[in-house]
Write a protein that binds this DNA or RNA. Structure first.
Lengths: 136, 136
DNA sequence: GTCATTGCAAACGCTTTGCATCTGT
DNA sequence: ACAGATGCAAAGCGTTTGCAATGAC
């Protein structure tokens, strides 16, 4: 039996108001910042539960778990700036098909894929160019 | 200045004698089991150093870092079974190009990408089919 | 002879868990 | 009234770091 609590809704809402992936701790901070008195453990539990139900997607990045609202079916991916965090939506139709294709080719079913492209956005590329003109 | 130590060689050797990916702790256990008195921290440091030099590939699996001897710089991706962890190497040339392409199209430089495909391998698909014949 | 490297263990960060209380049904 | 969720904080896990001795160059 699953009870309906404002905490759980708060986690879902916070997750829904994010652009890309967020860590559980960022979510907790955000919630607290928004006035919630929700506990960190509760955020983790809600996230785990939500993931279990398939309502959110999770991936591991550098030892952390990042969460994102699950886009059951047609989804798009993001191009993220490593430096300033700028996020650009990108259509990944060819990749969707490629993922499904390689999965099928190997006999795998229920294909899920995590596709994210990181890089330096134009502004940060220019900034980096002047910040590191010579490395020797 | 990089000094040549038997510990470092031991880590490389242990890594070279593995089939797939191994965790730092497994490597350490293996080394100890093989007679080495190498320390855990040293294994971590050697691994980090080796990865820095591009001699080994590393990936994160469920909060752990798994390492493997590097495949000459050219990287590929993996198709991972959600259930048993079976890993299949997949060539992602089209994705490489796609990633570079979308990055360039948006003015992004230094494109890195995270591409992982998860699914159920043939064996687990069959197992799941008999384990969950009806869901309601 | 010098300094990077090693090793131990504690610190660290992220996540999970125990237990008492509270809240939703 | 009952079952499950919450919250705090500490345990837990894997990883990193500090500091003194050691070994490589």
């Amino acid at each position: 039996m699953k009870r309906q609590t404002w905490q759980r809704e708060a986690v879902r809402a916070a997750l829904g108001s994010t652009e890309g992936f967020v860590s559980a701790q960022e979510l907790h901070s955000s919630l607290r910042d928004g006035g919630s008195t929700i506990g960190l453990a509760t955020v983790y539990r809600a996230l785990a539960s939500l993931e279990q139900e398939g309502e959110v997607d999770a991936l591991q990045q550098d030892g952390e778990s990042l969460y994102r609202v699950c886009t059951t079916g047609a989804h798009h991916h993001h191009l993220i700036c490593r430096n300033c965090g700028t996020t650009v939506e990108i259509s990944a139709d060819p990749v969707e098909q490629w993922a499904a294709s390689v999965a099928a080719a190997n006999g795998f079913t229920q294909p899920n894929h995590v596709v994210d492209v990181f890089g330096l956005c134009p502004a940060c590329t220019a900034a980096a160019a002047s910040a590191s003109p010579a490395a020797g």
